[in-house]
């Protein structure tokens, strides 16, 4: 397993739970799924959200997508524009 330090942009309700607009976290793994699991472990309150998506380089990414330290990664709680 590879440990990666990922820089995250965080929005909306997820920001209130995680306590910052930008955070760096260590993830043991290389996929979006590994990141999501790490987030749920570090911040269990995220599980109460109706959904939690991850965007990689400004696109929604599935759990099996690979992520790298150089990627732009964002934590996306349920959207509510309009």
């Amino acid at each position: 397993m590879t440990v990666q330090k990922l820089k995250l942009k965080i929005f909306g309700a997820a920001r209130d739970i995680m306590g910052g607009r930008e955070l760096e976290i260590e993830v043991n793994g290389q996929t979006v799924g590994a990141l999501r699991q790490t987030l749920f472990t570090l911040y269990p309150a995220l599980k109460q959200l109706n959904s939690l998506l991850i965007a990689v380089n400004q696109k929604y990414a599935a759990d099996d997508s690979l992520i790298h330290e150089s990627d732009e990664i964002a934590v996306i709680p349920p959207v509510s524009g309009g």
């Binding site: 909306g12 959207v79 509510s80 309009g82």
Partner: peptide, 11 residues
């Protein structure tokens, strides 16, 4: 579609 997909939030 904007309401469903665009990463915009309101409190």
């Amino acid at each position: 579609a904007i309401k469903a997909k665009a990463p915009i939030w309101k409190k």
